[in-house]
Design a protein around this nucleic acid. Structure first.
Length: 274
DNA sequence: CCTTAATCCTGGAAGC
DNA sequence: TGCTTCCAGGATTAAG
């Protein structure tokens, strides 16, 4: 669900509540959101119970909490995952919760569709080596050269390549379409044959679109909420996503729609010619 | 290599 | 109103 901007907003929102605070208790309410963890460390210790949180990390769409003894908890929100601070006690689909600091605050992992999950590691280096090494460079700071390298060997449509987290980490269906519109590139252009000016424009567009979405506190379409339960405003910035058939904000002609890599894709036939 | 389809789930919206 | 169908921000797997 949440793409890079939404995950970064959550990281920024929860971090001040956690830094320097001790995890008084951690509770796993649904063990199957954790069964894919790499090392089988006993719960709730693996969920940082007893540790003091010293930092947060993010790579692409994944976020992690780090404790003072190195224990590291990676959170992937999937399609409908949320991390919430002090939510209502009646909230449904809560799969894990933490009581942190004093006076204690309650941190909750909620995920109705359960495509997300938690992964536990002994150290941040273990997380990077065993899990994040499968991801490409982070999209928020992607440079032209890194984008070129990531796309060099794929003939797939650029839209499909942007969705592949092993090539670039953090771009999902919304921001792939928005970045391609901003760079005026057709979603069908083969990844490895983008011209140098297109690579530069696309790298700039990816960074710009993601940064703007973070400033607007993320795109709330239906499910996404910030850590305090509020909605993001980034959907008002969308030029193409979910606007099939509506006039292009640049040239006015109706936006086209198609399925690319099984994902709904919207673009402008007039502005995104090559 | 690439693409497509199926799969994991829930729930809101649209259609009848 | 009620029932059915479709669709969704993600990601992996198998098959062609």
């Amino acid at each position: 669900m949440p793409e890079l901007p939404e995950v970064e907003c959550i990281r920024q929102a929860i971090e001040p509540h956690l830094l320097g605070q001790r995890v008084q208790a951690a509770t796993l309410l649904r063990s199957d959101i954790c069964t894919r963890s790499t090392p089988r460390v006993a719960y709730p210790k693996a969920l940082l119970e007893g540790g003091v949180i010293t930092g947060t990390l993010r790579h692409g769409k994944q976020v992690a909490l780090v404790a003072d003894d190195g224990r590291t908890l990676c959170v992937h929100l999937g399609m409908s995952g949320q991390m919430l601070i002090n939510p209502p006690a009646t909230l449904s689909h809560v799969h894990a919760l933490w009581t942190i600091g004093h006076p204690p605050i309650r941190l909750v992992f909620r995920d109705p569709r359960r495509f997300g999950g938690l992964w536990t590691f002994q150290s941040p280096d273990d997380l990077r080596r065993d899990r994040w090494s499968a991801l490409g460079p982070d999209a928020l700071t992607i440079e032209t050269a890194a984008l070129r390298d990531a796309l060099a060997t794929t003939s797939r449509p650029i839209k499909a390549a942007l969705l592949d987290q092993a090539l670039i980490a953090g771009v999902g269906n919304i921001y792939a379409d928005e970045a391609l519109f901003r760079a005026r590139i057709s979603p069908f252009h083969p990844g490895h044959s983008l011209a140098p000016d297109q690579l530069a424009a696309l790298a700039e567009s990816i960074r710009g679109v993601l940064a703007a979405a973070i400033t607007a506190r993320g795109s709330t379409l239906r499910d996404y909420r910030n850590a305090d339960g509020s909605r993001g405003q980034a959907a008002t910035l969308h030029h193409v996503y979910a606007r099939r058939g509506l006039p292009c904000t640049r040239c006015g002609q109706p936006l086209a729609g198609a399925l690319v890599a099984q994902r709904s894709t919207v673009w402008c036939l007039g502005c995104q010619l090559r």
